[in-house]
């Protein structure tokens, strides 16, 4: 019985392809081809629907840019930065199914930036207004003497198109030196003992030094 059905199905397929193009199309549809198209349309529609919900969810978000100034006498190890990141992990929100697929829940995020404008280095954190207090608390917890100031986004003060009459642009990114299976070098491996009680541990020293050498107009 099943063999008969299979044979007649194969015969139908051959019959379909021996006709004109519209008849072939109709035949493919009749033999289940609509499933493929509907499958594709379903996922395209679902993707766009998800993007629409996300846009609606993010519509009222207000971003703030915080500049962090840590006094030079505030000696801390890189462990403090790790603790700051741990503190900020509290921002993780667990969305329920309706929140995710009906209200388009989107996890709020942070961006940590180190910028140098004409050699003046600044640590910036871009966050959504809702997490302003969380960010400030996480900084003060590790750097009690730090100054956290809300600043205007520096991106607004630079040209939109490059290269232009006055400026050129150059970019680079970091890649892994070895296979990704190798562990990343942590700040502990940057420690250098220069005396019995003095240990230097500054994994970003080289990086910041080159930032401080950025000249006027750069």
């Amino acid at each position: 019985m099943e063999t008969d059905f299979l044979l007649s199905y194969i015969q139908n397929v051959f019959d379909v392809f021996s006709q004109g193009s519209f008849a072939v199309f109709a035949g493919v549809m009749a033999l289940g081809g609509w499933l493929v198209i509907v499958w594709l349309l379903f996922f395209a529609g679902l993707h766009l629907y998800g993007e629409m919900l996300e846009d609606r969810y993010k519509k009222d978000w207000e971003w703030v840019l915080l500049a962090i100034d840590v006094p030079i006498e505030n000696v801390q190890t890189p462990k403090a930065v790790e603790q700051t990141f741990n503190h900020l992990a509290g921002a993780l929100e667990n969305a329920s199914f309706p929140e995710q697929y009906i209200y388009g829940h989107k996890q709020r995020w942070f961006s940590f930036e180190i910028i140098s404008i004409e050699g003046y280095i600044q640590f910036l954190i871009r966050t959504e207004r809702k997490f302003y207090d969380l960010v400030v608390a996480s900084i003060y917890a590790q750097y009690p003497n730090a100054e956290v100031i809300e600043v205007e986004d520096y991106v607004n003060n630079v040209p939109e198109k490059y290269p232009n009459e006055f400026y050129n642009i150059w970019g680079a990114d970091f890649g892994l030196a070895e296979h990704e299976a190798f562990p990343l070098r942590m700040y502990e491996q940057f420690k250098n003992s220069i005396g019995k009680d003095i240990v230097l541990s500054d994994p970003m020293g080289t990086f910041l030094e080159s930032f401080s050498r950025i000249g006027a107009g750069e």
């Binding site: 109709a26 549809m29 009749a30 289940g32 081809g33 609509w34 499933l35 198209i37 509907v38 349309l41 379903f42 395209a44 529609g45 766009l48 629907y49 629409m52």
Partner: peptide, 15 residues
């Protein structure tokens, strides 16, 4: 999204 949904319905009907 509405056009995609309508198209999907049309293909199902046509099939």
């Amino acid at each position: 999204v509405s056009v995609i949904g309508t198209l999907a319905g049309a293909f199902i009907f046509f099939g």
